[in-house]
Nucleic acid binder design. Sequence first.
DNA 1: CTGGGGATGGGGCCC
DNA 2: AGGGCCCCATCCCCA
Length: 571
Amino acid sequence: MSPGEDGLIGIPFPEHSSEILFRLNAQRRAGLLCDLTLTSRGARYPTHRSVMAAVSLYFRGLFGAEEGAEAGGEAGGGGGFSVCQLDCVAPDALDALLEFAYTATLTIRSSGMRDVLRGAQLLGIQCVVDACRDILGETAGEVEWETGEERVQAERERRVERGMKKGSRRKIDRRRVTKVESSHHQPLPHRPNINTHQHPSTPPPHPSPVQDGAHSHPSTRPPSPEQDEHPPTTGQNGERKQGRDAGRGSTAVNGGVHWPQERLLAPHPPLPLSDDRLSEDEEEMEGVGNGGVPSFTSVPLAEQGVATGAGGGGRKRKSQTPQQCPVCQKIIHGAGKLPRHMRTHTGEKPFECSTCGVRFTRNDKLKIHMRKHTGERPYPCPHCPARFLHSYDLKNHLSLHSGARPFECPLCHKAFAREDHLQRHRKGLSCLEVRTRARPRRGPGADHGEEGRKARGGGRGYSPDQLDPLENLALQPHASAFHPRAGMVGLGDGAGAGGQMVFQEEADREQAIALLGPHRLPYPGLLWRGLELGVRGVEGEEAGGGHSPALQHARWEEEAEEEAEEDEEDE
DNA sequence: CTGGGGATGGGGCCC
DNA sequence: AGGGCCCCATCCCCA
């Protein structure tokens, strides 16, 4: 909300761009308003030249859509190219690139990476080129045809895009950005602002996820002769710690790579990708799948023998058929839970508070919300007059009375009553002082035994005046400095809160990327992926994998121990 | 920086 | 199988 000088009011519609993209994709699938058909070895792909010109330098040039090329006639209008034969781009790759253009998500199979790279090079989709090269570990130069002004223009656009990403986030958007990044196309948590009303939760033409996924996809997908045996794209099926972790950037599981472009965030599901999301390990199960007809009715993974990461941390799980989300590939446990999950992608909020009009994705949340209006606080503290809306608030509160602080920082040994506070402490700068100050004390006679060693914190064998570059860069006190979340949040949101890997300047970002060495990735998402794959490993946090304080604490203890061991090795 | 309240999304149990 | 209800983990915001 930014009142202008003339009393102008700027009302942001944050979902507008992604919704437009979503609609365009729907039109493409339905063949509506398509003014360009791409062909590759017999496969035909109806599309929109404006979209292609927006995403591809090749088409931009082809249609004369470059800045300053607004010459009249054919060039300016880009007319005359109703069919564009692209046999040099493999159909699978072309399909993946089109999906990328319309969903901001590139989902490809590892084995098809080179084709996609070639296609992206030919079409001048630099970000895809970069991404593929990173995956493939290549460090090639510029796209062959992208030279001179085109390159300057491309670079300018990239800079603008980066600038938008990092500069335009305001506080009000921070949470949303983080969350969006957290799960691919995570929709935005509802906030009772103007958007609530201007963006109806169930736009009439917007079908429910189930319908959407079920009907929109198969019939309009251009026939690709190779699709059946060789699905063009692949995603991941592995469920990692989702919530706010997984999906931050790209993910790679079982040879498949799947990552969203950061800026184009669809609040609606980018139409479900075909069955090709099955990873290589799962290909044998393809026959069980829906035969290329993705559906939100999902694939009963249990029947397919998919390890659903029974990672239930303690609580025994009823054997309910897990279902896989066609958008984020997350495996949803529990019968009937998938529609609920899907609303996190669609942004649909069917449950409206009759009192204040606030809408919710879930009725149980609405129910809790209603307590605000009724004044009901059903969880009274037995020790004091405090009453709470949520049971877990009471639980938190009770720890205050008990004085219990079961969550202890393994580095500075500060104890917290709440696990999330400990996490915040570990991610933040709270321990920095301990760590950086402890260093100089190291040396003969400064041995504090195990406790001291821990208190000094881990490190990488750099002296105080010669800090670990990464430490120096991000001033991350803990190993969690390398936690993918920290990196991703920071990268995705330049205005991120303290404690996260925030790069104030582009140079910082570049430096960080450079310092990552083998994980050097110019893409935020890829950076995250690199961090995850290279530093922590894909299996770092398994979905649903117990997050009991004990487990978490044990993990952290391990981290601290590892760091301490590194210290000793360095000495 | 920390404590605390509230919000959100996922999973388990039950009907 | 679907959905209600509840708990949990995690996040954000504010004081």
